[in-house]
Measured scan of single mutants.
Amino acid sequence: ISTPTHWSKLDPKTMKVNDLRKELESRALSSKGLKSQLIARLTKQLKVEE
């Protein structure tokens, strides 16, 4: 399991699906679903981290 990238360095809308999945997995979140779902899930988590 990798260390999550700091929230300020991430822009989920421009990330590739593989990168989105890695970030979600490093935060112990589900990495299953469509790209739009991955973006929404990661965006929501990054707002919590701010």
Rank of each mutant, 00 (worst) to 15 (best):
R27Y: 00
E49T: 01
L10T: 03
T43C: 11
Q37A: 13
K9P: 03
K32F: 06
T14Y: 11
G33W: 00
E23M: 00
K22G: 06
T43R: 15
K22S: 13
T3S: 09
L46P: 01
P12I: 05
L29I: 14
V48G: 08
S8T: 09
D11E: 14
P4E: 11
E25L: 07
S30N: 15
K44Q: 06
T14A: 12
E50L: 01
K35Y: 05
L38N: 02
S31F: 10
L29M: 12
K47D: 07
L29C: 09
I39M: 10
E23P: 01
I39A: 08
K16S: 13
D19C: 12
E49N: 00
E49V: 00
M15C: 03
A40R: 13
D19F: 12
K16Y: 08
E25C: 02
S31L: 10
A40C: 11
M15Y: 00
L29Y: 04
Q37E: 14
K35G: 04
Q37C: 12
L34S: 12
Q37K: 09
L24M: 02
N18A: 14
R27P: 01
P12H: 01
E50M: 02
K16C: 12
S30L: 07
T3R: 10
L42D: 03
L46W: 01
K32W: 10
T43M: 10
H6V: 13
L10F: 03
K44H: 06
Q45P: 01
E25F: 03
S31V: 12
L42E: 03
P12N: 00
M15E: 00
M15H: 00
S26E: 13
S26W: 14
L46D: 02
I39W: 03
S36T: 12
A28W: 11
K9S: 08
D19S: 14
T43D: 10
D19W: 09
V48S: 11
S26I: 13
K44S: 07
V48D: 09
S31M: 11
A40D: 11
D19G: 07
L10Y: 02
S8E: 13
K44M: 04
T3A: 07
A28Q: 15
Q45F: 06
K9E: 11
H6G: 09
N18Y: 12
K16W: 04
D11Y: 12
L24S: 01
R21D: 00
K13M: 13
P12Y: 02
T3W: 06
K22F: 08
L38C: 04
S2V: 14
L34Y: 12
R27E: 01
I1V: 09
R41C: 03
N18H: 14
N18D: 12
K16R: 07
L38M: 11
N18S: 15
D19P: 05
M15G: 00
K35D: 06
V17K: 13
E23W: 02
D19L: 13
V17S: 12
L42V: 02
K9A: 12
T43W: 07
H6K: 13
S26N: 13
K44P: 02
W7E: 08
L24F: 01
K16A: 06
Q37T: 10
V17N: 15
D19V: 07
S26F: 13
D19I: 12
Q37Y: 05
L42N: 03
K9V: 09
L20I: 15
K47F: 03
T14E: 13
S30I: 07
T5V: 10
K22T: 08
Q45G: 04
Q45Y: 07
A40T: 09
K16E: 11
A40P: 09
A40L: 10
K13P: 07
K13Q: 09
T5F: 01
E50K: 05
E49P: 01
T3I: 09
K32R: 10
S30E: 11
A40S: 12
L34D: 11
K47S: 10
K47E: 06
S26R: 15
S26C: 15
E50N: 05
V17C: 15
S8N: 10
S36R: 09
L10N: 03
K35I: 06
K44T: 09
D19T: 12
W7F: 12
K13H: 08
S31K: 09
L38G: 03
R27W: 00
A40K: 04
L46H: 01
S8I: 04
K44R: 12
V48R: 12
P4A: 15
S8M: 06
L29H: 05
K22M: 12
T3G: 10
K13A: 10
D11P: 02
R21K: 09
L38P: 02
R41K: 07
T14N: 14
M15I: 02
K32N: 08
S8D: 09
E23T: 02
L42W: 00
L38Q: 04
I1G: 05
S30T: 12
K9G: 08
L24C: 04
H6N: 14
A40I: 07
S31Y: 09
K13G: 06
R27H: 02
E25V: 08
L34A: 09
L42T: 03
R41H: 04
L29G: 01
S8A: 10
L46F: 04
K13N: 15
I39V: 13
R27T: 00
T14S: 13
E25N: 03
L34G: 08
K32E: 10
T14F: 07
V17H: 08
L10E: 02
R41Y: 04
T14M: 13
K13D: 08
Q37D: 10
L10W: 00
L29E: 04
V17Y: 11
D19A: 13
K44Y: 06
M15F: 00
K44E: 08
I39H: 05
V48L: 11
S8V: 05
A28I: 14
W7G: 07
L34C: 10
L10Q: 03
S31I: 14
E23N: 03
S2D: 14
L42H: 03
T5C: 04
V48H: 09
S31E: 09
I1L: 05
T5S: 14
L20H: 02
K16T: 08
E50D: 03
R41F: 01
K44W: 05
N18V: 14
P4H: 07
K44I: 05
S8Q: 04
V17M: 14
G33A: 01
S26Y: 14
N18P: 14
A28G: 15
H6A: 13
Q45E: 09
R41E: 06
V48T: 10
A40M: 14
I1S: 04
L42S: 03
K32V: 06
E23K: 00
P4R: 15
P4K: 15
D11L: 11
T3L: 12
K16G: 11
S36H: 07
R41W: 01
R21T: 08
L38T: 02
K16L: 11
H6Q: 11
V17G: 08
M15N: 00
S26T: 15
P4D: 10
V17W: 10
V17D: 09
K16Q: 04
M15W: 00
E50R: 05
L46Y: 03
E49W: 00
L20P: 00
P12D: 00
T43I: 11
L29N: 03
W7Y: 11
D11I: 14
K22N: 10
K35F: 04
L42G: 03
I1N: 05
T3F: 09
Q37V: 13
